[in-house]
Design a protein around this nucleic acid. Structure first.
Lengths: 222, 222
DNA sequence: AATCTAATGCGAGCGCGTTCGCGTTAGATT
DNA sequence: AATCTAACGCGAACGCGCTCGCATTAGATT
């Protein structure tokens, strides 16, 4: 439970000693990184976050335990890095209609989380975010960026006149994503095509009805 | 990480030794229970789940560390018990219209999670569920029961003809709850009245549009 | 090819969370 | 009121996660 490391180590605060692996990112460093991430992904697929240990990761990857600790410091950091690696798989559709776009995006999310390993990774990241502030910040920023990317679907729909001009694009995307994480973390049921279709349709109908219009607030959206 | 305790302790498997506190639930036992739960709630309010320790709970409550371990075994178990205690505060409205009912319920949920302590408790339970199977089961069953209770709102709306007769009542309630947990766990922003209103309106419009109708499936809803 | 040093391998050691055995207390029963 | 025992208080000890200092390796530089 990393409490005030800087206070104990002394030189960290003055010289800002770089993390091992950041000066020479290529060659052996890249290999160990790949080995550790792969091992973590496989380990998560078998046992889940509760069973995951730094020692198991070290053993499966063939990388020494001390090295894993030096480069990442905790399982949570490894998992965060793993999520960023894996999450590039969900594509943004561009069909010409908001209904189809939302369906496509929801299908993509649904297909992603249909894989138990991806599910476990996201579960682990959320759990890590609850325990460690830096993981929470990472998770929040990551999803903020992804929603920002996906907001283009709604912006195009606004231009087409499908939804009101003052629709909160971020709110629509958040409404599209929310049910997946509810299923993933709360009701803990299967994530299937049914959920994707229902979710997409619900977000679409609500957006068309003008539910997500800005509440006449300030321009704090940037 | 409770791995096969029964195998190590021997007598646990044959005689099924009861948990301390279950034979004489009154008197001193009830006091220590209250002290531990209150201490955990206060500790969560200050530091969050990451800072929470059995020893801190023991110290703040005045109950000995060994006693806390004997009765609960882990912080996760304490937190689960705490959630069940605290969650009885959200009431189910009955106004005569689905729109107002959903607004009322959403406001209740929103007000509940506007309190940082309640937020922390739910965060902790979700994180615990990721790590320990029994917590996951507890969380899932708890929300299943709560959704079942809340489903009466939708059932009344069906009787009034506000939504299609084959509307999946559980899906409507899940859609109403999901955005709160997305905000709570993923985007990690404030849970305010805006969110409650938007969420209620979105669920209402989608339900009215027939988004949540059963997909002509079996009667597996029980 | 020789040199330099970042990154890793290695094992010892510390600290903290957790458990266990025994004595004590308090609430229930007669 | 006397007795019984569930539940609690107490401290020692175990085990595991984590860190640290030094030796070794490999990739980059000249």
């Amino acid at each position: 439970m990393g409490r005030d490391r800087a206070g104990q180590l002394g030189e960290r605060m003055s010289e800002e000693e770089p993390t091992p692996g950041s000066v020479r990112p290529g060659g052996r460093t890249a290999r160990t990184r790949a080995a550790v991430l792969t091992a973590t992904f496989d380990e998560l697929g078998e046992g889940g976050y509760g069973e995951l240990t730094m020692e198991k990761i070290a053993q499966r990857s063939g990388v020494h335990l001390a090295t894993v600790y030096r480069r990442w410091g905790s399982v949570e950091r490894i998992i965060c890095e793993l999520m960023i690696d894996k999450s590039a798989d969900i594509a943004l559709p561009d069909t010409g209609s908001l209904r189809a776009d939302l369906h496509g995006l929801a299908s993509g999310i649904g297909a992603f989380y249909a894989a138990p390993r991806n599910r476990r990774v996201m579960e682990a990241v959320v759990a890590a975010a609850v325990r460690q502030p830096y993981a929470a910040e990472m998770l929040r920023d990551f999803f903020r960026d992804r929603r920002r990317d996906a907001a283009v679907l709604v912006r195009r729909a606004i231009e087409r006149g499908e939804v009101p001009a003052d629709t909160d694009t971020d709110a629509v995307i958040a409404a599209l994503g929310a049910p997946f994480y509810y299923r993933l973390l709360i009701s803990r049921g299967p994530i299937d095509q049914d959920l994707a279709e229902t979710t997409a349709a619900a977000a679409y109908e609500a957006a068309r009805a003008g539910v997500f219009r800005h509440p006449a607030a300030d321009a704090g959206e940037r």
